[in-house]
Design a protein around this nucleic acid. Structure first.
Lengths: 140, 140
DNA sequence: CAGTATCCGAGTTGATACTG
DNA sequence: CAGTATCAACTCGGATACTG
């Protein structure tokens, strides 16, 4: 479902996720779907430090299950952000590394991380203020 | 603190919703959770063009349900990214606009959008190539 | 080691109906 | 207009077990 689902009240099969000129999200959805999920960013960040094997990644990304790591790296691979290399040894050995495209994305992720870090106090305070003024409201 | 944790990244003092020191995502998660979901970015982008009323937003963000729009703007408000103003008219009138913090975030979102747009062809091609070479694989 | 295959519960979303 | 309330459908992620 990650390919072209933006809002979609439009047609089922739309090869043009973009559709309208007044729809400013064209294309961004693709990337957002990828980096927006729980694990991708963590994997990307880890790979930014260099190639990693499957188990290394799993150990580095604390809490990720085998299943989720597999799915995550597969999707990143499919999008051309990560390169997966299998060495026909026994036991199997596979390494993952960022592609040029993927490395480019890390800059943005880094920028986002910096912004997040810089604004964490502000956001935290905003939340406290909100929760204080809206005691019974459950936004999550 | 940096995102990159080569081998060992001990985050010294961490006040955190984060839990553990070996978790390099501290803080970025907050923001990612917000902009990573299906609708927030679309709403932010729309608001980047100026204040909007509830219905205007709903019309602009194609496909969003009333419920989801409410939840989305509430969360953005709670995080201090969006300011919600209620005018006690009849019928009710409410407008939403980005806060200074929110506006700052739009720059990053913009950067992400630009990157996405620029790399869309590459990613699309990577996907086609992957799907061609892995015909039976369902990554979704 | 590096996966794949299943099952299942929790959380999220969307449709629908109703209100100040 | 700008919501709130409710509920069913669906998705996602984790746990577990098995394989080349």
């Amino acid at each position: 479902m990650s390919l072209t689902h933006t809002g979609v009240t439009t047609t089922p099969a739309d090869l043009d996720p973009c559709g309208r000129a007044d729809h400013p999200d064209c294309g961004i959805r693709d990337v957002l779907d990828r980096i927006g999920d729980k694990w991708s960013v963590l994997v990307i960040v880890e790979l930014a430090s260099g190639p990693r094997r499957f188990r290394e990644l799993q150990r580095a990304v604390d809490g990720i299950s085998q299943r989720m790591l597999t799915l995550t790296v597969r999707r990143l691979e499919r999008d051309g952000l990560v390169l997966r290399t299998v060495y026909p040894t026994v036991p199997a050995q596979v390494d993952y590394r960022l592609t040029t495209t993927g490395a480019g994305l890390t800059h943005l992720v880094k920028a986002l991380a910096d912004w997040s870090l810089a604004h964490r106090p502000v956001i935290a305070e905003a939340r406290r203020a909100y929760d204080r003024t809206h005691p019974d409201h459950d936004i999550r």
